[in-house]
Each structure stands twice: as C-alpha cells, then as structure tokens.
Design a binder for these strands. Sequence first.
DNA 1: GTTAGCACTCATTAAAGTAGAGTGCTAATA
DNA 2: TATTAGCACTCTACTTTAATGAGTGCTAAC
Lengths: 341, 341
Amino acid sequence: MEMDERKTKILQAIIRNYLETGEPVGSRTISKYTDLNLSSATIRNEMADLEEMGYIVQPHTSAGRIPSDKGYRFYVDTLMEAKEREVADMKDMLLERQDRLEDMLKSVVKILAKDTQYATMITAPMTHLNKLKFIQLSRVDSNHLLAVVVIEGNMIRNRMIEVSEEIDDETMLKLNMLLNTQLNGLAIEEINLSMVAKLKQQAGIHSGVIGDVIDEVVETLSEDKDLEVYTSGTNNIFKYPELADNESARKLITAFEEKEVLGDIIQNSEPGEETGIQVYIGGENANTNMQDCSVVTATYDLGDGMKGTIGIVGPRRMDYDKVVGTLKSIKTKLDDLYRKE
Amino acid sequence: MEMDERKTKILQAIIRNYLETGEPVGSRTISKYTDLNLSSATIRNEMADLEEMGYIVQPHTSAGRIPSDKGYRFYVDTLMEAKEREVADMKDMLLERQDRLEDMLKSVVKILAKDTQYATMITAPMTHLNKLKFIQLSRVDSNHLLAVVVIEGNMIRNRMIEVSEEIDDETMLKLNMLLNTQLNGLAIEEINLSMVAKLKQQAGIHSGVIGDVIDEVVETLSEDKDLEVYTSGTNNIFKYPELADNESARKLITAFEEKEVLGDIIQNSEPGEETGIQVYIGGENANTNMQDCSVVTATYDLGDGMKGTIGIVGPRRMDYDKVVGTLKSIKTKLDDLYRKE
DNA sequence: GTTAGCACTCATTAAAGTAGAGTGCTAATA
DNA sequence: TATTAGCACTCTACTTTAATGAGTGCTAAC
C-alpha cells in the first residue's frame, strides 16, 4: 500500500489536530476538520490503512489515533512548513551584542524558552580547534603568576600558576616575549613535546616556570572540552502531561542537570544537511532519558570555526513548525552576527 | 499547659518516627516505640495536649499525628543531636584543593547532594567587599584591549574593551603603571568620581581609553553581585512524595533554575549565631516557592572576608540531624582550607 | 494517673455500574 | 468501485456504593 494524496491530507489533519489538543483524534473529527467532504466511515477506512502502514497508532481499541514516531517523521520531513519566525526581544538583544559571549548565550536560551515554552539549551562555541591569539603572563604576587590566554574569536581563559622562585620584571618580559613569538597562531594540536622542549631550553634557568606555564596553557586550551551548556525553561516540561509524570520528569530534570549528558546529545547531532537543523523524535534519540520527547537542534556558526549548538526539548507532540521556524531565524541571526564584520 | 519531660519524649518519638516513615504516627505506635511503658490511651491523652499546644497536627480525624512547623522547630532547637559526620570523598577532594575555586564548589555541591539525597546549592564567595589586587591591560589586536582584574583572594575577572584609536606599546606600559599605582588596594566603594577624573587627567590624550577601562573595571567588580550559584541533586526532590507532585515540583525546579532567587534565599540567611548554621522550616521560608520544604544553610568563610553559603533543600521531614551534622563538618573543612596557610 | 473498651470518623481501596467516544464491519447507495 | 449509513461492540473514564481498617475521643473502671 502506498501513500496517496488523500491519505497524506488525512495524516496531516490527524497530526495537526493532535499537536493542538494532545487527545487521540477520531474519524468524525477529521471528517469535519478537513475540506475533503468525506464521511467518518471513509476516514475510518483510510485511518485503518494509515495504521497498517505504521504512521498512526491507537492507544487502545475504541480510542482515536495518535501519530507514531514514523508519522511525526513523515510530517517533519515532508508536510511541515517552517517559516522563519521573528522572535520578539531577540533582535534588540543581538543588536547590542553583549561583549561577554556567555551573557549573550544565557539571554538566547532564556528568550527562546520563553518564546517556545519548551526546555532549551545552548552550548558555547567549541574552541579546541582554534588558534592561540595572545598569551599574557603577569606576576600577581611573589609566588603567583597569572596566565591569560586569548583564543581566536576572543574567548578568554585564565589560570593562576604557583611558582616557587620569585621572578623579576625583566624575566617576565622575556618570558612573555618568548611565549608570544613561539606559540601565537598555533592550534592546540600543534603544541607538541619537541616544541615544549625547545621553549624550555630557550628559557634557560627558568625552564621550570616555562614548563608549568605551557602545561597550564595546554590544559587551559583543552579544558573547554567539557564544554559549557546553558539551559533555561526546564520547568516548562510540567506544562505537558506526557512529560510531567514523576518518572519522565525525573529523567529529564536529571538530564538537564548533568550538562555533560546534554553536551553529548547536542554535540553528536549531525549538522543536518543544508539547513543546519535536526529533528529527533522520541525513540530516535540516542539518550535513553530523552526517548519520551523530541529534540530539535540547530548548529550555529560564529565564523573562525567556532560552532555551537542550540537544542529545544519538548514532548513528541511539540509544535515542530514553530520550533524549527524559530531556530532557523535565530540561527541566521547568530550566523550573521559575527561574520559580517 | 507546659512541656514536661514525658511530653517531650513523646513529641520526639513522633517526630523521629515521622521522619523515617513519612506516615502520620498513631498512639499505638508510640506506645510500643518508646520505653515509657504507657498504654496507647495515655499516649492519646498526651497527644491531644501536644496538639492543643500546636506541636503536632492531624491531617484529618482518625489519622495519626504529624509534626507542625512549630514541632519541627522545637525538635531542631532542643531535641536534635547533630554530630559532625564525615562525608566520604569529601576529604580527598578538599585536600587536593582544586586551583579553580569554581571546580571545587561544583564538586562540593555534587558530593553533598549524593551524600544527603537532597537538593543542594552553593554560592561562590562574595567578593564585592574586596580589594583590587592587580590590573593588567594588554593589547590583543589593533582595536581590542584586554583588561584582567585580580581581586584579593585571587578571583579573576576579565573583559574585552573595544578602542577606536590604536595604542602603542609605550602608552600601554604607562597606562598599566597608572592603573596599578592608583587603584591597587582599593575596594570598589573607594573608586569615586573625583578619583576617576584625576586618573583621566593624568592619562592626558588617552583619557578616553582610561575612562573606558575604569568603567569596565568598576562594572567588572560590581558584576559579581549577580553571584554564581551552583546546584546539584535537583532530581532528588522526586524522592519525596510531598514534593514530587506536579505543582510543588514545578515551583522548586523553577526556583533552582532561577539562580537569582536562590541567591537571595541563601544570601539573606542570617549567619546563625555561633554555629553558622540556620534552619528554615516550611512556612519560615521567605520565598513562596519554598514554603513546602525546609532549607538548611551554612555560611563558610575562606578568610579575607570571602564568605559564601551552602544550602540544602528537602522536604519538611528532612533528616535534620544528618543534614546539620554534614554541613557542620563541611563548613569546618572549608573554613580551615584556606585559612591555614 | 492510667488503662481497657467501645462507638465513631474518615481515608483508602475495591467492586460495580454508567456514559460516551470511537471503532470495525456489513449492507445499502451513487 | 468508492462511499456512506447504521449498528453492535469495545474500552476508558467517571461515579456510586460498599467494605476495610487505622486511629481517635470519651467514659468508666482500676
């Protein structure tokens, strides 16, 4: 049996209706809902077919139908019309362009959660592929040095280093020069052992300090592998009965608390062809805690290889049109934001 | 009517039992539970008295009694024996003394949540009373300066500053000198307008940049008013039926997501006499979202006026002995940690 | 002052009955 | 051949009723 136009229309009507109400939809409803002018009996026959094909299921005999994962998938792939949607407040916010990326991300998830009424998350752009732009070593007090590392894209990392020997101003200057001339422009993968040895040699009697510093720099650079994830609107899950029961809620809250888990989910999402947007429906999610819900992710790109991901988590019956539309719009904005200049 | 020893014993027995089971306790249970050798009828009479005095309540006629807020209060104030409790893992962790305070705090809440099975939170030590220790201004690229500010206690803040005019090395050196000689050792409150004016004057043609920098510095220093709060074990609330229903859970999750709210709660807690530990039972909580639960806070002190707060949130019938004991122990450890040296 | 005994209350649970939504199937219709 | 009206059937959700039992308050006896 294959999908004809009428079946498609009916399936669409079922899904649309179910997205709205959250109740199984019956044949009579569809008979009136659509402009097909078919009796409920005919619809019933078609629905039996759709069920056989696996697009819809019955929670129990004598209930209406609800979309299966396959049904949603069909809807998302071929039926959905996601128009870019303006998000209020977002525009102003992005125009201001907070100088702290962190604050910007926090604002984005927050606005997104408020706008969509789902739980949202966003990862800071990954930087471990990036290049060292600038290192500054300063003496804070007699036995503490401060290493500030700036990475391409102006991400800043700093680190206190304890030193046993006191270091005079002249040496500081020399060390700074050394570090900057040798390391700038390198990606972390390029900092290998032989280079470290060379640096240490050049540092002479201060090779110990240089060693420490480089260790710290490398660690600093690799450290954002446990990348930051910001979340918002977790409480929105209580708006959807299918997620609000004790067990599901616990699972989700746990997942949202353990940012590492979130990071995995969000990071493993394929960039998703041309759009950069991916939809994972129910069982399609790799993470077991997420198989009761749907996750939509969007990869944004701030240029210089700095990519991050936005994720929206809601019930299976989430408003895919709206969510995808919103994400498209935000993705575009973020992509444009830094690239323009 | 006043509290005699027998009433006290009975009240204690009721509370202990209720803390364990979460079920209203009846007179017969107490009659067997205690070593008073009294019949249930006698207990009933005493319980009627205790109810009249407001220490216990009946959910409904023909149910046993449960402690009222007043009852818990009495228990916490005079009946509880909180012995310091070792927390596994904690010791090792603190000995290592992560160089990033942030990581340390994250570990603490995590371990605490795992140990107590309640939801936990911790604030980073407040620094806004602290003094500027060190400022470093560096040129990152032609139109970006990086300001790194180190505060007493080695808290680091940094900030990118956009400048229109390019600044040469010599000027950078001068500006750095100027900033450090003039501002070091000052608390934020001491940086006033006349001082800023003076600095600008001294900076001559670069007064614009100096102005920007000072603005940023001041903002940077004040910025940790929206202080960091780390949380863990939020999902533990689902372990306690009285908090796990939809409405209560939503409230709590929301509170835990909005760190500002948490910050208020945790910050407004009185240091709590000699122990530094405070217990807020049910309605005693100022925040409306928290009135279904109990909150125990402890103020820790890393020296140099750097104080932070730990909070544990659980049901009214939380194991106060354990929680207070644990907090005492951790508080001591944290207090000692940095002070020793 | 303490306790045994008893009537009473009320939440909880189970069982039974009712209503209604929706289906599948059949036979009639266009 | 496709569509539809009609009907018996199914199953959930809700309401009602009854049974159970834990626990109380009170009284009278010890």
